[in-house]
């Protein structure tokens, strides 16, 4: 399959801090999850791919467009939908006016065609009924859906979503996941998240980042399988475990190298993620 995004050797430092360290990846159609702890470089990678900030080194293309040239950057941006980590709004705008504003930024100057498109995306995210409400009067979940509608306007081929489910309650999160799953049909979506459930439910592929580098690149099942035979239960916190936490039943769930005779548990995606964070890179991403 022809890759939507092809990146090689992306490196970016903020002062002395490496935010991206020689990152290479290829993205194809469907939803790809980007997991990692705070400071892993997820947001920086998304900002570079969205052309919000330039990398110090490395090259990438999106749908064949090279952002290294002014024309390539503009063509790339025409194919881009971007939902930043903390999307800003003009709070006095209505939901319709805000999405309309973003549509104008996407060069849709024909009023009728633009309004049809704005109505379409507001309907797609289930906000038709509140289209005339000011954004400052909408709930957090609704605002997030307004931001998603703004990212979807113009039917972009590459959708970049930076932690879109943060701050949403469980019901809103489920609704949002449905929307992202629908958005992933027929286009490439890169979804940064802290939530392994987001990845488990949405993504056909997952990338794990840590300290600006890619630590894992594969399917969610492969990430889960990394922790096979590495998860065990104990009554007390096991000091030899790479990670351990108390479960709702009061016992501890540990990830790492189990002691002899330990009660092994079936691994989850979260176990595979935690195991990978503390381990060596499994394989570098495809160049």
């Amino acid at each position: 399959m022809f890759p939507t995004v092809s990146a090689s050797g992306l490196t970016l430092r903020y002062g002395g801090t490496p935010a991206l360290d020689d990152v290479s990846l290829r993205l194809e159609e469907g939803v790809t999850g980007l997991l990692g702890p705070n400071g892993a470089g997820k947001t920086t990678l998304l900002r570079v791919l969205a052309t919000a900030v330039p990398a110090d080194r490395g090259v990438f293309t999106v749908l064949g467009h090279d952002p290294g040239t002014a024309a390539g950057r503009q063509n790339l941006r025409r194919e881009l939908g971007y939902l930043p980590q903390t999307p800003g709004f003009h709070p006095d705008f209505t939901a319709f006016a805000f999405v309309d504003y973003v549509a104008i930024l996407k060069e849709m100057t024909d009023r009728s065609a633009r309004h049809r498109e704005v109505s379409r995306v507001l309907q797609a995210v289930g906000l038709s009924d509140v289209r005339g409400k000011r954004i400052k009067r909408l709930s957090g979940g609704m605002r997030q859906r307004v931001a998603l509608a703004a990212a979807l306007v113009g039917d972009p081929g590459f959708l970049v979503l930076d932690e879109p489910t943060v701050g949403l309650d469980p019901q809103q999160r489920m609704r949002f996941r449905e929307l992202v799953a629908e958005a992933g049909e027929g286009r490439t979506v890169l979804l940064s998240t802290h939530q392994t459930e987001d990845v488990a439910m949405l993504c056909r592929r997952v990338i794990v980042m840590s300290s600006g580098r890619i630590r894992f690149d594969g399917t969610p099942a492969e990430l889960t399988a990394r922790a096979a035979g590495r998860v065990w239960s104990s009554a007390e916190r096991d000091p030899g475990a790479r990670a351990g936490w108390r479960t709702g039943l009061g016992s501890f769930r540990n990830v790492g190298d189990p002691p002899e005779g330990a009660e092994l548990l079936e691994p989850t995606l979260e176990d595979g993620y935690l195991f990978t964070l503390d381990g060596e890179p499994v394989r570098e991403a495809a160049a």
């Binding site: 919000a52 881009l80 971007y82 703004a150």
Partner: peptide
């Protein structure tokens, strides 16, 4: 941030 990545 949304404005700067727009094609305008």
């Amino acid at each position: 941030e949304m404005t700067v990545v727009s094609p305008v």
